[in-house]
């Protein structure tokens, strides 16, 4: 659905939001498409700042895919043009450091390419901004602070207050993206900026092959009633050994975390 005319360029919060968009891949056909999580990030951005939202992509920028994002109702986008085997991180970081937006939205993980899910974190590290992962919704901005709703497993949500600027990756639990309209998408402008891309040396050495399905352990549900089955499907796994520390002092809590990391061999 296109943003209504009256919302155009209207930015009630006055903040600058950038949504990073990537080339998605349809799981059945393998065809390039609007990535599901990135489209949700765009939807969130549109609801937050309307057409003031900036779309940003680093790569060759498959035109059909770019236009399918633009068809959500944006008049233009920024393309940092570089070959597909170049690393997206340096150009994005450089661009964002220069533009200084208040909020950067991304998907949790790309559907094609490396798809490591590391981009938001690496960007955060480079820019020195906090990263909130897997958000489902964003509330109002009040005095440079915003309440975001983080999606946790099994439909749980956690409300977090964050100070701008920050980076948020958008979970599938966020509002489904609006339909992309062909006409506006076709007419929108793609501002292509040539960049001197840094070739991702590690990635060029890789070989891509279709993923194999991991064998799954059969889960025998012994539940007799529908209520039991429901519980089995929704209850938290009863992992042993967990500990909830609420009343202890910060030092004790930190010590417990450190002990656990040493125990698990994360820190030696």
């Amino acid at each position: 659905m296109q943003p209504e005319a009256r919302n155009e360029n209207l930015n009630p919060t006055g903040i600058k939001v950038v949504s990073l968009i990537s080339i998605g891949q349809h799981p059945q056909s393998g065809r390039a498409r609007r990535a599901e999580q990135d489209a949700r990030a765009v939807e969130l951005g549109l609801n937050l700042v309307g057409t003031g939202l900036e779309l940003l992509h680093a790569g060759e920028g498959d035109e059909t895919v770019m236009r399918s994002y633009l068809g959500m109702g944006l008049p233009k986008m920024t393309l940092l043009k570089q070959r597909d085997h170049c690393d997206a991180l340096p150009v994005l970081a450089e661009y964002l450091a220069r533009k200084v937006p208040d909020l950067v939205l991304t998907g949790v993980r790309a559907e094609s390419g490396e798809a490591s899910g590391m981009l938001p974190f690496l960007l955060g590290e480079k820019l020195g901004w906090p990263v909130i992962n897997r958000i489902a919704a964003i509330g109002e901005v009040v005095d440079g602070e915003v309440e975001v709703l983080q999606a946790l497993p099994r439909g749980q949500r956690r409300a977090i207050k964050v100070r701008l600027p920050f980076i948020a990756s958008v979970d599938m639990a966020a509002e489904a993206p609006r339909q992309s309209a062909y006409g506006p998408g076709r007419r929108a402008a793609i501002d292509a900026n040539a960049t001197d891309g840094v070739v991702d040396a590690v990635r060029t050495g890789w070989q891509e092959s279709p993923a194999r399905k991991k064998p799954k352990r059969l889960k025998v549900v012994k539940a007799k009633t529908a209520a039991d089955r429901f519980k089995a499907a929704t209850a938290k796994p009863q992992g042993g050994g967990g500990k909830v520390m609420k009343n202890e002092s910060a030092t004790e809590q930190a010590q417990a975390v450190l002990d656990m990391l040493v125990e698990e061999g994360v820190i030696r």
Binding site: Q2, Q28, S29, R31, R33, Q179, A181, P184
Partner: peptide
């Protein structure tokens, strides 16, 4: 559909499937 992107109910999903898989149900 083409200008407003406002095909009701399963319309958008069907069209997305047709674009990505050449069949309306995304097989």
């Amino acid at each position: 559909t083409l200008e407003k992107g406002n095909t009701p109910n399963k319309g958008a999903e069907t069209l997305d499937n047709l674009i990505a898989t050449d069949n309306p149900n995304g097989f």
